[in-house]
Design a protein around this nucleic acid. Structure first.
Ligand code: MN
Ligand code: MN
Ligand code: MN
Ligand code: MN
Lengths: 222, 222
DNA sequence: ATATAAAATTAGTCATGTCTAATTTCTATT
DNA sequence: AATAGAAATTAGACATGACTAATTTTATAT
């Protein structure tokens, strides 16, 4: 009953996608997330359904069974713990760790996650600000809200990113934005929902709606 | 030009097998080492030959090209560095680390080995006493000689194992033999080349020839 | 030199996981 | 209700890396 790399990636994708919208995940959505075709997704979902890791066919869309969700959370836990090790111990930067963790998350050993967890001092969040499931699979609420939901003029602090791709993180690096950076939304452009923001009380720059939806912040009073 | 897990395991197997005997490796030998059939080995060797990682067909047997050897050493380096991390940082024991490292060695990132190396303080040997290739691919001579080559009555110290399988290491654990343990060969049985040995100046036990060929020792004077 | 055994090779099959190209089934909109 | 477009599904192909069952080649012993 050991899972293949592909199976694990499907489970994780379903987990993340149904986490946001809370609903069942469509073939099309999964296909886009995994960069596979709909045909491939369907055949894998059949396989996962047979293994009782996924509920499908019912209406439209897939969801994880209890066992499937447990497996997915385990992968996410490993992924985020490895990211902490890569960043804190091996001195990899924000934009490098995700792709390496994407490989490390598939290393199997019953005790590995727990040993890592202990060695790292039971971290609560990974370097991108995402909560690390604990040994029992409990996940704390995500910390912070999307920058896109912030009011204009309020002093904000970056607590995480929604998108961990190296493309996005390299962009942030160029803008000198990291966890702890100060942001302020100066204005929203009605036309396309883009915005002008101020970074670390420095100069103003213009960013897209997509950008605003990829950063997690908290308000720091004011 | 990224290598698959299978390709990497073949390269590593050829490397280890040609290291001992210094000669080209036969299909049969490789098949046994990889627990695959001869037919499978041949088709993979053709593939690796086409990729110019292996020289084959010539006479009988396979050997690594310069590029292939570089790749193999890189995998061995990662394997052993990960073993050090698993043992020293994550507190895994002798017999657990090899199988996990077998997975970790296939994680790809150009800087990963070097970062690990630095974090671990540039270890020279892995927890089984095997030399870790340095950043340039240089490998120190293996430390110690086989227990099977020791004279009777000489005080010896365990410096490593030749066989890192959990089956063998669990056996050693039961015998309370680890790196640093004291051994003495009391007598060799002519009939089957088995031996009676003394462990840590304790009781005598009888072990097979295969056992004697799986332990690396140094003489400690006397 | 010849028979026998071992080793290498070829041919064909299979499981996985992907794809493309139909085809079918929904969903909207008029 | 009819119909265009989107989403899901099916059918068939393909790459990878294994396998089994011949067959051929090579080595060894008489
Ligand atoms: Mn990540
Ligand atoms: Mn992954
Ligand atoms: Mn090992
Ligand atoms: Mn391996």
């Amino acid at each position: 009953m050991t899972r293949t790399l592909s199976e694990e990636n499907y489970l994780k994708a379903i987990f993340h996608l149904s986490r946001n919208s809370k609903e069942k995940v469509s073939i099309t959505t999964l296909a886009a997330a995994l960069e596979n075709t709909a045909a491939s997704v369907i055949s894998m979902l059949k396989k996962l359904t047979a293994k009782e890791l996924v509920d499908y066919d019912k209406k439209k869309g897939a969801s994880l069974t209890t066992v499937g969700e447990k497996a997915a959370i385990d992968i996410v836990r490993k992924h985020r713990l490895w990211e902490v090790l890569l960043a804190e111990k091996l001195e990899f930067s924000w934009e490098e760790i995700h792709d390496i963790a994407e490989q490390l998350e598939h290393v199997h050993h019953p005790e590995l996650a727990d040993r890592l967890d202990k060695f790292l001092g039971f971290p609560q969040f990974d370097p991108h600000g995402h909560p690390i499931p604990d040994i029992k699979g409990n996940i704390s609420k995500i910390f912070g809200t999307l920058l896109s939901e912030s009011a204009v003029g309020v002093e904000l602090e970056v607590v995480g990113v929604k998108d961990s791709s190296s493309m996005f993180l390299n962009y942030l690096k160029k803008l000198d934005i990291k966890i702890g950076s100060k942001l302020k939304v100066e204005q929203i452009i009605d036309f396309d929902q883009s915005a002008v923001i101020k970074i670390n009380n420095g100069g103003d720059i213009s960013v897209s709606r997509k950008f605003l939806e990829s950063i997690l912040i908290t308000s720091t009073g004011n």
